[in-house]
């Protein structure tokens, strides 16, 4: 049975097994590579995207749960010509190093800012729990505060 959903503002459908992780449908079937595979166990957050505006770790999220819902990936967050405030802040603070985990962090941040528009450092510590091996956390924190300002 196909699963129908909205992907970055467009209608999308997949015939994938309803228990398949959403990540692989997005990456390999629908061809959007911005959502990354890191661990497959929802432990690192590289695969974070939004389902109905909430941050979800898609490597462990069965595709059957997205029926009729809105899925947003980094490609739908903003574009090079029209960056989302989180992307703009990431660019201004020059956050990425290898960059592989960054879409997951940006998606997690964008979801947090909807709930907490002006996060404190403690809010950031409690809500942004993805893994970055290059150690860009220091600049990320600055970028999150900056994104909060840019979103006003």
């Amino acid at each position: 049975m196909p699963t129908n959903f909205n992907l970055n503002g467009q209608q999308a459908t997949t015939e994938a097994d309803p228990n398949s992780p959403l990540l692989w449908v997005i990456r390999d079937e629908l061809g959007l590579k911005g959502t990354k595979f890191g661990c497959g166990k929802a432990a690192c957050g590289a695969c974070t995207l939004h389902v109905d505006g909430k941050a979800v770790r898609s490597c462990s999220y069965p595709v059957k749960f997205i029926e009729g819902k809105e899925v947003t990936t980094i490609e739908g967050l903003g574009t090079p010509d029209n960056l989302h405030p989180v992307q703009q802040a990431w660019k201004e603070e020059i956050v990425p190093q290898c960059g592989y985990c960054q879409p997951g962090f940006m998606m997690a941040t964008a979801a947090m800012l909807k709930e907490i528009p002006e996060p404190t450092d403690e809010d950031i510590d409690n809500n942004i729990v993805n893994v970055c091996r290059c150690g860009t956390y220091y600049r990320m924190r600055k970028a999150i505060h900056r994104a909060s300002q840019l979103s006003k």
């Binding site: 990354k36 992307q87 660019k91 960054q102 879409p103 940006m106």
Partner: peptide, 11 residues
């Protein structure tokens, strides 16, 4: 920077 803030398929 732009590739890395927009999730470009570079890896």
């Amino acid at each position: 920077l732009m590739d890395k803030v927009t999730g470009a398929p570079i890896y």
